[in-house]
Structure formats: C-alpha cells, structure tokens
C-alpha cells in the first residue's frame, strides 16, 4: 500500500488534491481510499487529507500515521505544532513542499528529518498557468500522482473527474489541464516513491486505567484564560493587504470591519495592519471605498 498525506490550510485545496490523486489511482485500476480532516473548519487553519492506494481492498481507516509521501502546500506549516506535517516520517519518507525556498533552507527548519525532501514553487506555476490560486490543488494532486508512479493519462483522467464536479468555466478547466501537464513533466524528474514492506507487528500498547478525577479536573473548563493571543494567525495569510497611504481618507471602515481586529490606528489615525494577526481575508480590500489597499502575494 502507498499512503499519501496532504497538509495545507483551509482554502488551499488539499482535500481536492487528495481526491485528484485518489481518482487518478482509481482510474488506473487500484483500490483507493481518500478522506480529509479539517477539525473546526476555518479558512487558513491547518488541515490534512489522506489518500491510500493498494492492489487489494484497503483495511485501514482515518488518519495516515506512517506516510510514504507527504505533500505540504504551505511551508509555514513545516514547524506548525498544530499541523505537524512530518509526524511519522522517517528516512524512507518523501516530503514534497510547495515553497519559494530551496531544499537547504527548508532542511534548516526541520533538522531532525532525514528522508527525501523535494521542493518547488507550485504556486508560481499555478498562477502563471491558470491565474487562480485554487489550482494549487491540481498542481499538487498531479505532482503526487506522478510521484507515486501513475501515468499522465491516468492523472489527467483523475483530474477530469474532479473538474467535472467543479463550477469553473471551460477555459479554466482547460487551463487546469495545461497546468497538470506542466507539473507532471516537472515531477517526472524525481524518482518515484517506492512501496514499503508492510509491518503489522506492533508492540502491545501500554494501556492505563482511567480513574475518577474530581469535577474541577473532569469538566471541560479552562481556568488558564487569556492565552489565545499566543496563537499567531498571521501565517494563515496567502495574500496581504497593503495600504497606499496617499489614497486613504481615514474613514476607518477597514478598522471597524476587520473581523480579527488586526487593524489599529496610528497617531495620525491612519490604519495599520498587524501582520502577526492578519489572516489575509482581504475584507478590508473589499470594503475600502477609495481602493486604498493593494494586494500582494505572500512570499515567506
């Protein structure tokens, strides 16, 4: 069996990527299982999706604990304690990271990881071909299909299965097919991921007896309040709003409407975006009556 785990942020299309891979393998005649896990669904929050491919009926469920291939849509997730994309990886794993940075730079962030690490800027390729960030799912789904050894024809068939269900225009669908061919050609230069020997022998788990705790412990109350600011949400952002001060009339609409209260006012009452907290929802951009915000793609 091949086990592929996708990590991304809500809205980056990694559920779709896992389905494109699943459909491609299904078209190639394999037994397939794919499933996403979001937790509490929020755009920008870490999520994961799983695809299993085998020649026989798959007798596994839920999260993939020991992946053969990990696809990471966003390199800010590499060190995110909520995402932990490298959990369960070892020297035989392959990790494919969508990033503007090179392998050496990424390895500095995850020094404990000893397996293969591949990196490419799929976002740039996707934007250049389709002008739509959502097509990152096509790029990474097809890259994964290529890496597990599926043919271009099966990869495109899998992509078509997913595109059939989407609401995009014919032109966009065609652009996604072009993107798939570009990415497949690029990923063909990497050696395919190899299937590993399945080892079913596990050590007996050290089970414990759960005993009575008083209600102060055993009720889901939190006494250590006020710790949510420690969780910075600025790295959820894919696009950043940038204020062009000369166009700002200081109407404060952005300041009032920002759902994260990430916009404050400076001494001259001009809005200031706190990029540690701004999730990149771009509500300020849409609300601004003078179009004083421009949008820049986030490059980290």
């Amino acid at each position: 069996m091949l086990r592929i785990r996708f990590h991304g942020r809500g809205g980056q299309g990694m559920k779709t990527a896992s389905r494109i891979l699943g459909s491609a393998a299904f078209r190639a005649g394999f037994c397939v299982q794919d499933s996403p896990v979001y937790g509490a669904e929020r755009r920008g929050a870490p999520m994961a999706a799983f695809t299993r491919i085998d020649r026989v009926q798959i007798r596994e469920r839920g999260a993939i604990v020991r992946p053969d291939l990990v696809v990471v849509a966003d390199d800010t997730l590499l060190t995110d304690p909520a995402a932990q994309p490298l959990a369960g990886c070892d020297a035989e794993s392959t990790v494919l990271v969508n990033s503007t940075r090179d392998e050496a730079a990424l390895r500095q962030e995850v020094p404990a990881y000893t397996g293969r690490l591949l990196t490419a800027d799929f976002t740039a390729v996707a934007l250049a071909t389709t002008h739509a960030l959502a097509s990152l799912s096509t790029a990474l789904g097809v890259a994964a299909a290529c890496l597990v050894g599926l043919s271009l024809a099966d990869s495109l068939a899998g992509l078509d299965d997913e595109l059939t269900e989407s609401h995009m225009s014919m032109a966009q669908k065609e652009a996604n097919r072009q993107l798939a061919q570009t990415v497949y050609a690029q990923a063909s230069s990497w050696a395919p991921v190899r299937e590993r020997e399945d080892s079913r022998i596990a050590e007996t788990a050290p089970l414990v007896e759960v005993t009575f705790d008083p209600p102060r412990l055993a009720g889901p109350s939190i006494y250590a309040v006020g710790n949510s600011p420690q969780r910075r949400t600025g790295n959820w952002r894919q696009f950043r709003p940038v204020l062009q001060v000369e166009r700002c009339t200081r109407c404060w609409i952005c300041f009032v409407r920002c759902p994260e209260a990430a916009i404050s006012l400076d001494a001259q009452e001009y809005p200031v975006v706190d990029y540690d907290e701004c999730k990149g929802c771009l509500l300020c951009v849409h609300e601004c009556p003078t179009h004083a915000f421009t949008v820049e793609k986030e490059v980290r």
Binding site: G39, A40, V210, T211, F212, D213, P215, A218, G219, P220, S221, I222, Y223, V225, G226
Partner: peptide, 26 residues
C-alpha cells in the same frame, strides 16, 4: 475576579474519551 472558559471543544478523541469516561466514573 476569576474568569474561566467552560465547555471547551476538544479534537482527536483522547481528550473527549477522558471527559466522557469521567462522567461514567462519577
């Protein structure tokens, strides 16, 4: 003078198992 959050959400199953089983023990 003693704010608290009650009825927190948990994910992953192990925390839920703990709280639900505590109801049984009680």
């Amino acid at each position: 003078d003693r704010p608290m959050a009650q009825g927190a959400a948990v994910l992953g199953g192990a925390a839920y198992s703990y709280f639900r089983y505590q109801q049984h023990l009680a």
